[in-house]
Design a protein around this nucleic acid. Structure first.
Lengths: 224, 224
DNA sequence: ATCGGTCTGTAACAGTGTGCAAGTAACACT
DNA sequence: AGTGTTACTTGCACACTGTTACAGACCGAT
């Protein structure tokens, strides 16, 4: 037989202490996912390797495979788990315009808050899964603003792309990028024939939060 | 002594045929970069491994190291080389608004055209380097439109983020993402309380080109 | 003919995800 | 109490990654 894949839990066992004699690790698929999340949040997405996780769990690597199947499944599970955990934040504002903005900002803020897992999801190409619950809320607000069908979809996709862009810029690990290849550094070394003040401004780290707000508002207004 | 790092070219050699006796491969740093670009464009960024490139060049892996230093340097060189090669496309339009749009679209189109290298740059966190020449053009047009200093920088960064977002969505390799985790699939399986037509529209692959144009125009207008 | 810088190859280290076969412990049933 | 089945765990191995220490081979200059 292969793996359980579905949560087995055939036998009820206490997961805290080792159950029977001591051979069984007494660990659950859920335990692995939990530890994986812990690991990712503490040391970033790259720290998540099967061997590392196994060590952390005091278990052989293959045990993880038995429980979760593959690294890919593990990541998916992490994201699924995380997307459920995301606290449904209250939408602020009365006017549709403000409520949409609020819903969109939730994606941004939550993604930054759990930056490690967001990066992980992005790497795995599963950000859709992670952001889905937020997008449902967003879609609801869009419909409340009078947008339905293709119009609502267009607006949502437009917002999605914009948010994604800002997230990529905000979450990329600057510390892992050589100094001379960072955006500001590239502009600082620029010899382009532009106004001095423009060059200086471009060589300065932008305030992404402010920029996000300005840009997103324009994108949203474009659809209302 | 370590590596040359700087293009040595101490002795002038014909790089086509093996020069001396036959021991020397007669390969240049430039040859490695060229082959690497070829490889990346043909089989995607993940196909670029040092061993693979070495095989492709009929050379031992260490030879590559001697010439280019490290994988990271190789990637940087690829990007630098590519960013120079990028044909300076003519800006279309007479009105500043149109010319800015044209400049921004160049980034988009060129990135898609060389999607593999764009992805590579993105993975390595060096997209700044790659897009810099385009951004110079963009900045010039922004100044021509009357934006200078922080205002120009703000506009450029706003546009940069938007373009980045669309690029990420456009370039992520859908074929490597399991069907059930793709955006459209997630929405297709949705049970959210939304209008049927909205759900259907969200389950359909969006026309990113069109969406890009609409969104970017709004972002640009926001700064004029 | 020897010296030294320029290149190239062999072998190895440490790390990754993953598959296979074997083993042990716990349970169910006779 | 003994036996068989299932649930889990493990060690080993494979194929891959980037990178490096070391040992040479080649070549031009002295």
């Amino acid at each position: 037989m292969a793996q359980p894949a579905k949560r087995a839990e055939t036998a009820k066992r206490v997961k805290g202490a080792t159950p029977g004699t001591g051979r069984r690790a007494g660990l659950d698929r859920a335990d692995m996912v939990a530890k994986a999340i812990e690991l990712v949040e503490a040391e970033g997405p790259d720290a998540l390797s099967m061997r590392r996780l196994a060590t952390e769990l005091n278990v052989a690597t293959t045990t993880i495979y038995w429980h979760v199947g593959s690294r890919d499944e593990l990541v998916t599970e992490i994201i699924r788990h995380q997307s459920e955990r995301l606290a449904a934040r209250p939408i602020k504002g009365k006017k549709p315009r403000d409520r949409i903005m609020s819903a969109a900002t939730h994606i941004w803020e939550s993604s930054i808050e759990h930056r490690a897992i967001t990066s992980l999801a992005h790497q795995a190409g599963s950000s859709s899964l992670l952001q889905y619950p937020f997008e449902v809320v967003l879609a609801t607000e869009l419909e409340a603003a009078g947008l339905v069908g293709p119009e609502a979809a267009l607006a949502l996709q437009s917002i999605r792309a914009t948010v994604t862009g800002f997230l990529v810029l905000a979450l990329r690990d600057e510390s892992s990028i050589p100094r001379d290849r960072r955006t500001t550094a590239v502009w600082a070394a620029s010899e382009a024939e532009l106004d001095r003040s423009t060059l200086d401004a471009l060589a300065t780290e932008p305030d992404l939060n402010k920029l996000f707000e300005i840009t997103l508002q324009a994108v949203i207004d474009n659809h209302l």
